[in-house]
Nucleic acid binder design. Structure first.
Lengths: 193, 193, 193, 193
DNA sequence: GATGAATGAGGCTTCATTCAT
DNA sequence: CATGAATGAAGCCTCATTCAT
């Protein structure tokens, strides 16, 4: 019945529970029980609890995000079109790893103590740097940060809605792109004048 | 030096530590040690750990938010101007209780298991209902949710900046108001056409 | 029934079990069960298992040994008579803390990983330096080390004997003093010629 | 590269780690990792952890010690010269198995729970019986025990020294023989008179 | 000869909480 | 108002060991 897929099954259940109940509240005992295995079995596949959560990010989101960053850095200086394409590509990463992104969004405090949290934060800050202008008005900087956050949070913000995953992705992407477009044109400063 | 203000001091330290290290990672022992008191002393002032965190929300954010909601519900049906004023008032609540909002934002998973978390979520959803149109395009619904999230997260998003608290508040408010304005005018649907 | 003496009772039982079954083999569960308390109660009185064993050495042997060292260092350069008096005083320390010394002797490997082990080792090496001549023949250095070891191990070496504690102490002291006397007179080098 | 010598390699690594970190603190995982094998591989060669440590004593020290005992028992009643020759022969056993003797000396508490520990203890007590007089003065019994302990511990007592193994062996042997000689002549009793 | 996968027992430690004083 | 002492539950993790392949 169980071949070489136990590692995968552990990751699946862990992701589900982490997203559902939070990182700290999810114990390895719970994960093991959901799987019908012993706690010790988890330790055969993952060195620590942190190692387990780290593997989720590495397998689902870190690689894809790095691809976006690599692509973006090859297209500098960053035109508006490039920025919009960054958002587009990033929205696809996120959409594919949606429960993990939800987990990341809702457990920032817990992730801060994990080394993978630091790595993810760096990726997001790097994306932010690529999207915003260093010396833009404050409100335009907010627009760019907000664009990223919007994509991170939309999938579960729109939980009640009957829209499907792809519709949500497009809606979030549209809003994010509008925000970045406005920031790019310096919507912030003229309104201040 | 310290008279009957112990309760206050506990809240201050608790808020600081909760915001810094997260709800689950902050133990009552830590809080007590930071205060130079015994754990048991905390229990004289607060029935449980949950009671302590609840008191923070009640004292700092729940009341003010309810005032905004009460005001908003008295001004229905909601015109664009009303919506913008809701955002304005809410941004002031948030600005005053800034570390608690950060805590809320970064500990959503933990708060989900606490009854105060449910209460706060209701408030935010109520505000969202007042701001968005029930049958707006999906992207416009995202805009309104994003407006709220943007205000929640801006204060620590802009951590590195040298802007002061009030400047940040205004920048976040501007972005939020733009988003809601766009949503109000149905920016979403035409772009779909 | 139990007033402020719980800490003491924990130490007593811990010493007994540590000496009986070794440091690593003695679990805090066992100690707690022997006392009719919870494991958590131990942690109220001692921060860790290492802290518990450390307290034993500090309370029973470290202080007295330091007194011997202090006395010895005040009587430098060290005449033979002084050396013999060092042995005499040290034998009394040891005799009073006899089960702990047995524990130390039989758990050197375990103690090497504990910081108190390092401290105790330093004390013994210091005593050794005071007793032996830096440039004595190899066999005389062995004599001095042996003198110390002999006192450490005699109490349980002579376990079967019906002699009482004080007789054993005197016998060990006599042998140790003979060894140091021989070393002092350079018994080693002439026999080599 | 490695043919049928895996068993030997396991023993080598095990001895090294046991001596370094102690019996309890050394896990089979560690041993396996140092060898670049799986834990399960160890179980192909040794039935249990105890079996592994037992094999070390059997191969390195038990046989040679038994030879000494056999020789000694054939030379009863034991003259002083015989006693000195026992020490001489035993010192050679020990010198050859030096890390294992260090291990034995520093892990007495752990060995007490192992059947091989009991066996080794018996050998040493047997040697002690052969060396000392049943009804000697207490101090002379201490001398004989001390002679044995001295040889056990000298190799690592003299760790800092630049003397080579054989010089250390001779120094320890000299001290041990002096002690036994003194005991044989009843140095203890006249001093009591 | 050796591995991959798993187990059951048990280790140390921390936590929120209680209660007599 | 607050402490000292303690508890019960649970946490993460490691260990020696087994067994099918």
């Amino acid at each position: 019945m169980s071949r070489g897929n136990t590692r995968q099954r552990i990751q699946d259940v862990a992701l589900e529970l982490f997203a559902e109940r939070g990182y700290e509240k999810t114990s390895l005992r719970e994960i093991a029980e959901h799987l019908g295995v012993t706690k010790a079995a988890l330790y055969y596949h993952f060195k620590t609890k942190e190692d387990l959560v780290t593997s989720l990010f590495e397998d689902l989101v870190l690689g894809p995000a790095d691809e976006v960053i690599t692509w973006a850095e090859a297209h500098q200086p960053t035109s508006l079109e490039t920025k919009l394409e960054i958002l587009n590509r990033y929205s696809e990463c996120i959409s594919n790893a949606f429960p993990l992104v939800r987990f990341m969004h809702e457990n920032q405090a817990a992730l801060r103590e994990l080394s993978i949290g630091e790595l993810m934060k760096q990726r997001i800050l790097t994306l932010l740097e690529l999207i915003k202008d260093q010396d833009a008005a404050l409100s335009d900087q907010v627009r760019c940060a907000s664009a990223l956050f919007t994509m991170h949070s939309t999938f579960f913000t729109l939980q009640g809605t009957d829209a499907d995953q792809e519709e949500k992705r497009k809606a979030a992407l549209e809003v994010a792109q509008d925000l970045v477009t406005a920031a790019h044109h310096g919507a912030g400063s003229p309104s201040g004048t």
